[in-house]
């Protein structure tokens, strides 16, 4: 059984990683081929770094991810606190339903529905001026981030004793101060997790962005899509390798930080493993 599970896991990981590894290897290929490897070179990396469009798209993607995750975290945190407080309100049901829509809908439907709205607004409200581009992308990304932020904060709020806030207010805190001093520290891990999730969702999104993007603001996934549509240069292998390496390093760091945090906690509480 032990050996079977080992072989099974190795096979699955081979399946998951083989295409990526092939790309990594071929990013160092000396010739423009996907089947033959001839000579080691960095030429595709050099070509990539001379490509201004790639660097520009990366910058756009980062701006969009930072802004949309910040906006969705602020709106989402407030909404989560509000939803958690609602007891008998008739608004609660519809609010939760609205939160479910973007999570249940296929991305392509979310994308086209927003595109219809933006086209309509551009045509009839702004008199033919298109808002497709930065603004439509920011709105779309914030919208699909919001439910995920709320879903990662709500469980934290449910763990919290509502009497804590009441106590703070009895002791003279204004509601705003009670929120900052009591509620926010308690739910901070959920807020941060939600924000990070929003950031990566935004950075990674292609389908929804594809339908609401304009020609003046290109994100990295959109650029990659355009790259795979035309005659493809092996620079895309170099780009994938760089993305893979960055993700790998980031995950190693987060894992290391997490396990160190856990060790510290264990020490503090005096629990021995």
């Amino acid at each position: 059984m032990k050996t079977f599970s080992k072989i099974y896991m190795i096979t699955v990981f081979l399946f998951l990683y083989a295409p990526i590894m092939v790309m990594v290897v071929f990013s160092f290929n000396g010739i423009n081929s996907t089947g033959l490897f001839q000579g080691f070179s960095f030429r595709w990396y050099e070509e990539l770094f001379q490509n201004r469009a790639v660097l520009n798209a990366l910058k756009n993607s980062l701006i969009l991810a930072v802004l949309s995750s910040l906006i969705s975290t602020v709106l989402g945190t407030l909404a989560a606190v509000g939803i958690n407080r609602m007891r008998h309100s008739w608004i609660k049901g519809p609010t939760m339903m609205l939160t479910d829509i973007p999570m249940m809908n296929p991305d392509i439907v979310t994308g086209i529905s927003m595109m219809l709205l933006f086209v309509f607004v551009g045509k009839f409200v702004l008199g033919g001026n298109s808002i497709m581009g930065f603004w439509s992308l920011l709105i779309a990304h914030t919208t699909f981030n919001l439910p995920y932020v709320i879903m990662s904060i709500l469980p934290k709020l449910r763990q919290m004793d509502p009497k804590l806030t009441e106590a703070a207010m009895d002791l003279g805190c204004t509601p705003a101060k009670a929120f900052v001093k009591v509620v926010l520290p308690f739910i901070s891990s959920g807020v941060i997790a939600g924000m990070m999730m929003a950031f990566t969702l935004s950075l990674d999104d292609f389908v929804i962005s594809y339908f609401v993007n304009g020609s003046n603001f290109q994100t990295l996934p959109i650029l990659i899509y355009a790259m795979t549509k035309k005659r493809v240069r092996p620079t895309i292998n170099a780009l994938s390798t760089i993305i893979f390496t960055v993700v790998l390093i980031l995950l190693i760091i987060t894992n290391a930080v997490q396990s160190r945090g856990e060790k510290k906690n264990i020490k503090k509480k005096g629990i021995r493993q």
């Binding site: 407030l78 909404a79 509000g82 829509i101 914030t142």
Partner: peptide
């Protein structure tokens, strides 16, 4: 109060 702080989100959605 709950409805008030949820309202920006609700409006957005």
């Amino acid at each position: 109060q709950a409805a008030l702080i949820t309202s920006p989100y609700l409006l957005w959605m």
